[in-house]
Design a protein around this nucleic acid. Structure first.
Lengths: 231, 231
DNA sequence: TTCAGTTTTTGACTTGGATCAAGAAAAACT
DNA sequence: AGTTTTTCTTGATCCAAGTCAAAAACTGAA
């Protein structure tokens, strides 16, 4: 692996505090590769061989059942995914595919478990990461079960606006098709929900979104740290 | 805390492998109390002060938003809940209330984090528990997003039958009202879904359920380890 | 018991969101 | 540029599931 790549991974909260030697051991068996868009990295049901880390691009985490498919999360740089399956040495519960051309580091699960036993700081970081992942899925489940699709969309838009900073407009971070799946609705319904929000002062042009009056959208989404990552 | 209680908690996967001394330290600051039914143990949004362990009874984990409420899980003996919030020292994302009269052990979150740093075996157990919790919420989210309510009900019944063993009938483990909320539907709709399953050979008498032909229900639920805890 | 308060069921009705089908608009190729 | 493919939108229709209302069946206390 290239030195610059190592630096980047080293900077992740997950690896930041671990000792030099364990980190070097861990990375010895790791790969770092480029993938084109739409490549399946992980298939649900398979044994969890590698911890994956997106260092560039974007990865969709999704699940399939009986001819249906749903997006459960989108991993963007720099973050890890499917840590839980690796730790438990259990089959993946989600599939993963690249959304754009992406750069992915892969750390063998066995090495991960070994490093975890040797390095206390790493163990602590893993627990923190895992707890964070857990809380994020709980939020997703609450979102789906408690809000209507219009409310979910409003909450998502508020969150993106928040992330984008104080600029008056922002871009949707991925295709509407995937956003719909993530929000638990059909693309058709997303399109209509977007039109409904137009009446509430949301201007949409392609992937560009602008709020006429943020507070009106807030009133629909009623975002809060108990359901939304950002408030 | 009574010695018998300590034994019981000690036997949990979470505490089984930790050293004598750290376990004793951890339990020194812990409480073990009886609560009547319908007592709110935890309110979402509050800072996570204690790890809770149900040693007897049953606890509903639920969330509220804008006048709506949903059950996210039911904790039964002997298991822990809201570990993630304690570990991350973050606000609870779920509320908890006793469903029946219950016995709950409470371990201060600060002690938990300290023990975690001192005892490697405990750290490992926490990671395993946390990964298990994570996977269980992912399953819940998949269940809600991918299956229809009739399918969710069928899957739930198959799971319960599995747990109950080879007897020809089993009991619903809690009120239908709560089951409906857990499965993400209204009580009225659960009632109707149950009636639909009657046509598929599910006999329901109060809380007692009996399958005429399990395979017919399996064909609806299509259970699998990627979405259901038991197959 | 009886009575009050639940929970569960049922019926009638409404609605949010899915489905189907067909254009329009972008992207992604030659 | 033009052509193909995919994504996005729109309209029409349908259905699963929610809502409202009121019985029926439990539960638990006096």
């Amino acid at each position: 692996m290239r030195d610059a790549d190592l630096q980047e991974i080293r900077a992740l909260p997950l690896f930041r505090d671990m000792g030099e030697a364990p980190f070097a051991d861990l990375m010895r068996g790791a790969y770092h590769q480029n993938f084109p868009a739409q490549v399946t990295l992980i298939e649900e049901g398979r044994p969890a061989d590698f911890l994956h880390i997106v260092t560039d691009g974007a990865v969709e985490l999704f699940a399939r059942w009986s001819n249906r498919e749903t997006t459960l999360a989108v991993a963007r740089p720099v973050s890890t995914f499917i840590l839980a399956a690796c730790i438990n040495d259990a089959p993946y519960l989600m599939s993963a595919r690249t959304m754009t051309s992406s750069r992915i580091a892969m750390v063998p699960g066995a090495d991960l478990r070994a490093a975890f036993l040797k390095d206390a700081a790493f163990a602590q970081a893993i627990v923190g990461e895992l707890a964070g992942c857990y809380r994020s899925v709980v939020r997703h489940a609450k979102n789906i079960k408690l809000r209507s699709s219009k409310e979910r969309l409003a909450a998502f838009l508020i969150g993106e606006a928040e992330k984008a900073g104080q600029g008056s407009s922002f871009e949707l971070p991925f295709e509407k098709r995937i956003l719909a799946s993530y929000l638990g609705m059909t693309p058709e319904n997303l399109s209509r929900a977007l039109k409904q929000l137009k009446d509430e002062g949301v201007m949409v042009d392609g992937a560009t979104v602008r709020f006429h009056d943020v507070d009106r959208i807030r009133a629909i989404a009623m975002p809060g740290r108990l359901m939304d990552e950002c408030v």
